[in-house]
Design a protein around this nucleic acid. Structure first.
Length: 951
RNA sequence: GCCCGGGUGGCGGAAUUGGUAGACGCGCUCGUUUCAGGUGCGAGUGUUUUUGCGAACGUGCAGGUUCGAGUCCUGUUCCGGGCACCA
C-alpha cells in the first residue's frame, strides 16, 4: 500500500476535531505547561511558508509535553486590529470588520491543514468586544493608579490624593510623575477640583499629556517610538515629524528599573535581553545644578544637567540647552532674542529624519552665562539641537576635551577646549575614552582649600570622588537616567479599541463605569479623519456618554448637560496584544480578564515563540502591562514569558531566467556568459531543483508563449538569489501548495530540517524530496509492497533495540534543547537502520511512532492505529531510553603517538585501563612509533582515544 | 562609535563534556531496475598527491595553552543584528 498522505491527513484532522483531542481544562494536581505563539495579524495575502515555522516548532514542543504527561495549554488567536484593514477600507469602503473576518477565515483554513494541536475553543480576536472589554478595563485600572518608587509598585491613586492632602507633593514622596508640579499640602487643599485633576494626570499611569510625539502626516496618526525607524514610519516608510500634542500615554518609564531587573530572571536569548537593555538605556551619573551668572545661589533659575562624566567638571567651557528646553526663553537676552528666535524656527522646521541626516553643527548663543558650581567659573550658555529635549534634563554641561559632539561644537564656534587626562592630545579630536589619569582638575594655581581635587586619580575614581563631593556640598545628586520613554497610547485611527473615556464639563477626562464595558466601536460611514482634522471616530458625531441615564448614546444626542463627548482617538496595536496570553487562560469569563483560579493554575507562559521584530515593542509593553496587573494582584507572576525563543525569518529563494537582449530566447545559467542577457525573476513555483518547467513557463505569462530556449544537457537551469519573500520577486511559497504536493507531515518535517530554528534561512525546496522519501520508507516498515500490514509480535534483536533507544535518547534531548533539525536526521538514520534490518516488530515500531508523533502527527496517528491501538497517539506515553541497549560490546580506540592517530584497535568494552594500555603497546604497529622507548605518559579516554606520549 | 551573535565541503547544516571533523539531507558520479524518462535500489563523493595501498593538508586569518583544539585563551578580519548627536 502506498503512503496516501492526503487521505491520512484529512482523516485524522477530522478525528481530532470531532473528539476535541486538544481541548484542555485546568486539572489540579496535573502539571501544566503553557506553550504560546505570537498570534498573527491576519493580512490579506494569507500565510506564506515562513509563518508556520514557529507554529510547527511550538506544536512539536506542545505535543511532546502532552506525551510527557503535562496539561498543555496551546492556544491560537488573531491580532485583528491593524492599519492594512483600515487602509483597505479607505480605498474600497469595505468595513475593516468584514476584511478582517475574511482574512481570519483564510488563515484558519491554512492553519487547519498543517495539523496543529491548538485548542481552538480558546481562540481570541483582539477586535472582539468580549475581548477588548478587558483591554479597556486594564486601561481604566492604569488611569486610577500611580507608581510608588519606594514600594516599587503601582498603587491606587486614592492613596496619592491622601498624601497630597497631608504633605503636598514634596516631603519624601518618591513617585513617578511628569514633574510639572510642586505644591504644599495647603496649596493642594485650596486648589480647584479642575486644577487637582490636572495635577493628578501628571501622576496617573495612564495619562493625558502634552508630549513630543512622532506625528506621521501621511498616515494621519501619531506613532510609538518603536514604530519609527530612522525617522520614517515602520509601516509605509513615510516621514515622521516631532510635534507636541495632547495624547494618552502609559507611564512605562516608571517600570524601567523593574523591566531591566526582570530580564535576569527569565530565560530569553542573550541578544534579545541585550536589545531590551539597550532600549531601556539605563545610565548612571549625576545631576548637577548650574546657576545663572550674576544672580548667585539665590537665582531663580538653576539648570540641572545630567552627566555620566562628573570627573570632567573642570573641563566644562560652556553649557548647551535643547531648543525645546523651557529654560531657553528665560536665559535669552534681549540683544540675542532675534537670533535665537530665528534658530528656533529653523530647527522646528526640520523633521526628525533631517535632523539625523544633517549633522552640521548649528547653534546660537543665548546671551547669558552660568556658574559652574564646583569652579565658580562663568561659562556661556548656548542653544543647539544636538542636545535632545527628551533625554536627561534637556541641558548639558559641555566638555569639549572629552566628548566628540561638544568638541565639534567648540571647534565650530571657537570655544575653549581643556584637556583633563594626562598625556591626551585634543588638538585634532576629543579624547572620549574613560581611562587615564586626571590632570588640570583643578588647574595649577586655581586650587582652593576645601575644593575638589582630582589630579592624579584614575577616571573611575575621579567620577566617584566628584559625585561624593557634589552630594556632600549639595551641588547635585547621584542619579540614574533611562532612555525608555513613556508609550504614546493614542492613535488617530478608526480600526482600534475605543478609549473608555469621556470629557466632563471642565473638559477633563473621566473613565466610564466598568459595568458599561465594553465600549463598542461605533459605526462610521468614512474611515478617514474628518474635515476638521478630528480622528475618524469624529464621524460618529452622535456618539456620547449620557451620564444621568447611565448609557452610551449612538443615535440621537439629547443635548443636556449630562451628555458628554467620548474620546475620539483609539488605542494602538500593542494595546490588544499586551495581555492576550492572560485571556487564553480563561477566554469566556464575562466577569474578569482572568479568574484567580485559572491564573493560579496556568501562571505564565512557559514557552513563547515569535519573531525578534517585537523585541522593543510588544515584548516591552507586555512585560509592563503584566507587571502592572501583578502589582494590582490580578495575576500571580511578575514576568509573562518564562522562556522565549525567536524563530528566524524564512527568506525567499528567487529564480532567474536569462533572456538574450532583444530576443525571445532564454539561455540556461551556465551558457549565459556567451550572450548579452537580462536576468528576469521567474515564478519559483514553476521551477524544480533550479530546473525550469518550460511548458509551465510558456503558460505562465502570455508574453513568453513563443519563447525559445538554449538548453544545457537537455535542461534549462535557472539562476538563483536569496531575497526577501515577496510577491514582486515571484518567490512566495504558499504552504498550501507544499501540503497539496507532499502533505503536511512532510512540510512540518522539512521546515524543521531546514536548519536551526533561531536562524534566518532561505526557503529552498531542493531538499524536500529527501524528507518525503523518509516518510515513504517509514511507511514501508509497516506495509509490504503488496499492501499487507507486516507488523509482528517478534522479539526484537539487539541491533534493533539499540537503534530505537538511540533515537529516543536523541529526540528527547533535541526537543528539550529546541534542536529539531537534528531530530529529523535522527529519524532518518533510525528508519534507514530498521529498513536494512528488515524490522517490522511492534516493540520497535511503536516507540518510533510515539517519538515521531510531535513532528509528523498525521502519519504517526495512522500507523499507531494500524498497528492495533484504539486511542489517539496523543494519549500515548513518551518512551524512555534504556542505556543498557546503547552500550557497546567493543570500543574502537584510536591509538595516537604524540597526538597523531596512527591506527585503530578494537577492545572489549569492559577492558580495564591497564589492559587497554597494554593492548595498545603490544600491537604489532606500535613498535614503529615507540621505537622501543618506554612511553612517558599514556592517556586513555574510555571508548575513544589512547594517546601514547613518547619523549 | 558602543553592545550582542556568527564564519565548518559544491549547498543546507552535524559534532551534547576539549577526544577518529564533515552526521543527516540535497547536489554530483558510477552501477542497477526500465523500451525510455522519472521512480526505486546499491556504491562513491573535503582538498592535494598516488595506478593502488597510503600520505600530507584541512573548521575566516595570526599566535597561544594542551598528549590532543571547530570547541579554551589573546589579537585580527569579515558577515548578521541591536542601540546611537542618549551627555
Amino acid at each position: 500500500m502506498e503512503y496516501k498522505f492526503k487521505e491520512i491527513e484529512k482523516k485524522w484532522q477530522a478525528y481530532w476535531n470531532l473528539h476535541k483531542v486538544y481541548q484542555v481544562k485546568e486539572e489540579e494536581g496535573k502539571p501544566k505547561c503553557y506553550v504560546l505563539d505570537m498570534f498573527p495579524y491576519p493580512s490579506g495575502a494569507g500565510l506564506h511558508v515562513g509563518h508556520p515555522l514557529g507554529y510547527i516548532a511550538s506544536d512539536i514542543f506542545a505535543r511532546y509535553m502532552r506525551l510527557k504527561g503535562f496539561n498543555v495549554l496551546h492556544p491560537m488567536g488573531y491580532d485583528a486590529y491593524g492599519l492594512p484593514a483600515e487602509q483597505y477600507a479607505i480605498q474600497t469602503g469595505q468595513h475593516p470588520e468584514i476584511t478582517t473576518e475574511n482574512n481570519i477565515k483564510r488563515y484558519r483554513e491554512q492553519l487547519d491543514k498543517m495539523g496543529f494541536s491548538f485548542d481552538w475553543d480558546r481562540e481570541v480576536q483582539t477586535c472582539d468586544p468580549a475581548y477588548y472589554h478587558w483591554t479597556q478595563w486594564a486601561f481604566i485600572q492604569m488611569f486610577h493608579s500611580y507608581y510608588c518608587y519606594d514600594l516599587q509598585q503601582a498603587r491606587p491613586i486614592g492613596e496619592l490624593i491622601e498624601a497630597f492632602r497631608q504633605t503636598g507633593s514634596g516631603n519624601g514622596l518618591n513617585v513617578a510623575s511628569g514633574g510639572h508640579y510642586s505644591f504644599t499640602a495647603d496649596e493642594w487643599n485650596t486648589m480647584s477640583r479642575k486644577k487637582q485633576e490636572e495635577v493628578l494626570l501628571d501622576y496617573r499611569l495612564a495619562y493625558l499629556g502634552d508630549t513630543m510625539v512622532n506625528w506621521c502626516p501621511a498616515l494621519g496618526t501619531v506613532l510609538a517610538n518603536d514604530e519609527v525607524v530612522n525617522g520614517l514610519s515602520e509601516r509605509g516608510g513615510y516621514p515622521v515629524e516631532q510635534k507636541i500634542m495632547r495624547q494618552w500615554c502609559l507611564r512605562v518609564s516608571a517600570y524601567a528599573q523593574r523591566l531591566l531587573d526582570g530580564l535576569e530572571t527569565i530565560d530569553w536569548t542573550e541578544s534579545l535581553k541585550e536589545t531590551q537593555r539597550n532600549w531601556i538605556g539605563r545610565s548612571q551619573g549625576a545631576e548637577l545644578y548650574f546657576y545663572l551668572a550674576g544672580k548667585g545661589k539665590e537665582a531663580e533659575i538653576s539648570f540641572a544637567v545630567f552627566t555620566t562624566r562628573a570627573d570632567t567638571i573642570y573641563g566644562v567651557t560652556f553649557m548647551v540647552l535643547a531648543p525645546e528646553s523651557e529654560w531657553v526663553d528665560p536665559v535669552t537676552t534681549p540683544e540675542q532674542q532675534a537670533e535665537v528666535n530665528a534658530y528656533l524656527i529653523a530647527t522646528k522646521k526640520k523633521t526628525e529624519r533631517e535632523r539625523i541626516a544633517d549633522r552640521k553643527v548649528t547653534g546660537v548663543f543665548s546671551g547669558s552665562h552660568a556658574i559652574n558650581p564646583v569652579t565658580n567659573e562663568e561659562i556661556p550658555i548656548w542653544i543647539s539641537d544636538y542636545v535632545l529635549a527628551g533625554y536627561g534634563t534637556g541641558a548639558i554641561m559641555a566638555v569639549p576635551g572629552h566628548d566628540s559632539r561638544d568638541y565639534a561644537f567648540a571647534k565650530h564656534f571657537n570655544l575653549p577646549i581643556i584637556p583633563l587626562i594626562e598625556g591626551c592630545d585634543v588638538s585634532e579630536e576629543s579624547f572620549d575614552a574613560k581611562e587615564g589619569k586626571m590632570t588640570n582638575s583643578p588647574r595649577k594655581g586655581k586650587e582652593t582649600p576645601d575644593g575638589l581635587i582630582l589630579n592624579g586619580l584614575e577616571v573611575k575614581d575621579a567620577i566617584a570622588r566628584t559625585q561624593a563631593y557634589i552630594e556632600a556640598k549639595g551641588l547635585g545628586k547621584v542619579k540614574v537616567n533611562y532612555r525608555l520613554r513613556d508609550a504614546i497610547f493614542s492613535r488617530q485611527r478608526y480600526w482600534g479599541e475605543p478609549f473608555p473615556v469621556y470629557y466632563d464639563a471642565d473638559g477633563l477626562p473621566q473613565t466610564l463605569p466598568e459595568n458599561k464595558l465594553p465600549l463598542k466601536l461605533p459605526a462610521v460611514d468614512k474611515f478617514l479623519p474628518t474635515k476638521t482634522g478630528e480622528p475618524p471616530l469624529g464621524h460618529a458625531d452622535l456618539w456620547a456618554w449620557d451620564k444621568a441615564n447611565n448609557r452610551i448614546l449612538e443615535t440621537r444626542c439629547i443635548n443636556n448637560e449630562s451628555v458628554f463627548p467620548l474620546e475620539r482617538n483609539t488605542m494602538p496595536g500593542f494595546a490588544g496584544s499586551s495581555a492576550y496570553y492572560l485571556r487564553y487562560m480563561d477566554p469566556h469569563n464575562p466577569r474578569e480578564l482572568v479568574s484567580r483560579k485559572a491564573n493560579r493554575y496556568w501562571r505564565n507562559v512557559d514557552l513563547y515563540l515569535g519573531g525578534t521584530e517585537h523585541a522593543t515593542g510588544h515584548l516591552i509593553y507586555s512585560r509592563f502591562w503584566n507587571k502592572f496587573l501583578y502589582d494590582t494582584g490580578v495575576v500571580c507572576e511578575d514576568e509573562p514569558f518564562r522562556k522565549l525563543i525567536n524563530q528566524g525569518m524564512i527568506q525567499g529563494r528567487s529564480n532567474f531566467v536569462y533572456r538574450i537582449n532583444g530576443t525571445h530566447t532564454f539561455v540556461s545559467l551556465n551558457l549565459k556568459e556567451n550572450y548579452e542577457v537580462t536576468p528576469l525573476h521567474v515564478d519559483v513555483n514553476i521551477v524544480n531543483n533550479d530546473i525550469l518547467n518550460i511548458e509551465a513557463f510558456r503558460n505562465w505569462n502570455p508574453e513568453y508563449k513563443d519563447a525559445e530556449f538554449i538548453l544545457e544537457k537537455g535542461k534549462y537551469v535557472c539562476g538563483w538569489a536569496i531575497e526577501k519573500m515577496s510577491k514582486s520577486m515571484f518567490n512566495v511559497v504558499n504552504p498550501d501548495v507544499i501540503v497539496e504536493k507532499f502533505g503536511a507531515d512532510t512540510l512540518r518535517l522539512y521546515e524543521m530540517f531546514l536548519g536551526p530554528l533561531e536562524q534566518s534561512k532561505p526557503w529552498d525546496t531542493n531538499g524536500i524530496d529527501g524528507v518525503h522519501r523518509f516518510l515513504k520508507k517509514l511507511w514501508a516498515l509497516f506495509y509490504a509492497p503488496g499492501g499487507s500490514l507486516q507488523v509482528n509480535e517478534n522479539q526484537p534483536a539487539n541491533a534493533e533495540l539499540k537503534s530505537i533507544h538511540k533515537l529516543i535518547k536523541k529526540v528527547t534531548y533535541d526537543i528539550e534543547h529546541f534542536s529539531f533539525n537534528t531530530s529529523v536526521s535522527a529519524f532518518m538514520i533510525c528508519v534507514n537502520e530498521l529498513s536494512s534490518l528488515k524490522c517490522s516488530k511492534r516493540m520497535i515500531l511503536e516507540p518510533l511512532i510515539v517519538v515521531l508523533a510531535p513532528f509528523a502527527p498525521h502519519v504517526a496517528e495512522e500507523l499507531w492505529h494500524a498497528s492495533g491501538n484504539d486511542s489517539s497517539v496523543c494519549e500515548a506515553v513518551w518512551p524512555t531510553h534504556n542505556e543498557t541497549y546503547l552500550k557497546e560490546d567493543t570500543f574502537s580506540y584510536a591509538v595516537s603517538f604524540n597526538g597523531k592517530t596512527r591506527f585503530n584497535i578494537d577492545l572489549p568494552a569492559e577492558a580495564s585501563r591497564e589492559e587497554v594500555e597494554k593492548a595498545a603497546l603490544s600491537h604489532e604497529n606500535a613498535l614503529k612509533w615507540t621505537k622501543g622507548k618506554r612511553p612517558k605518559k599514556v592517556i586513555v579516554v574510555p571508548g575513544k582515544i589512547i594517546n601514547i606520549v613518547i619523549e
